[in-house]
């Protein structure tokens, strides 16, 4: 028995749910959280995205330095952003399949901020309706 915690973009919630159904996993719990990842050490990775955002954000009222500072902090991982935390309980043998499905649904071209998947061991589970425990309680 494993617990899969996947932290994904808010926008990708629908796609993640669809991917889970396609992988044969219908049950999940989702919470709205705030998250941030590792700091971007190589500025090259966010360069392309930064230029794109800067070209969108500039107008006659904004000062170049301010906008750039904001966009950089937006991309380099120093600020918290809304994310969706999925918690999925799974049998051991289904874990690789679920990870693959979630990772595929959430991969974007941005290079950073796509989320993380954690796999934790679970010692027991109980279904409230029937009282059955262990592997039978998962699905």
């Amino acid at each position: 028995m494993k617990e899969i915690m996947a932290i994904v973009r808010m926008k990708k919630t629908g796609e993640t749910k669809k991917a889970l159904v396609a992988a044969g996993v219908a049950g999940f719990t989702a919470v709205k959280v705030l998250g941030r990842g590792n700091l971007v050490t190589d500025p090259q990775t966010i360069e392309e995205c930064k230029e794109k955002l800067l070209s969108m954000g500039m107008d006659e009222f904004s000062e170049a330095g301010d906008t750039e500072k904001m966009v950089t902090s937006f991309l380099d991982g120093s600020r918290f952003f809304p994310r969706r935390l999925f918690t999925i309980l799974a049998h051991d043998e289904d874990v690789p399949r679920i990870i693959e499905a979630v990772a595929k649904a959430n991969l974007t071209e941005y290079g950073v901020g796509d989320g993380t998947i954690f796999v934790l061991p679970v010692s027991d589970a109980v279904r409230v309706r029937t009282g059955e425990a262990g592997e039978a309680a998962i699905w």
Binding site: K2, V8, G37, N38, V95, I99, V102, A103, N106, L107, T108, Y110, G111, V112, G113, D114, G115, T116, I117, F118, V119, L120, P121
Partner: peptide, 17 residues
């Protein structure tokens, strides 16, 4: 504190933090 078996970073596509 709980143990974590595996970690995947989606954008890198590889296991690990």
């Amino acid at each position: 504190v709980s143990p974590v078996d595996e970690v995947y970073t989606i954008s890198k596509g590889t296991p690990g933090l």
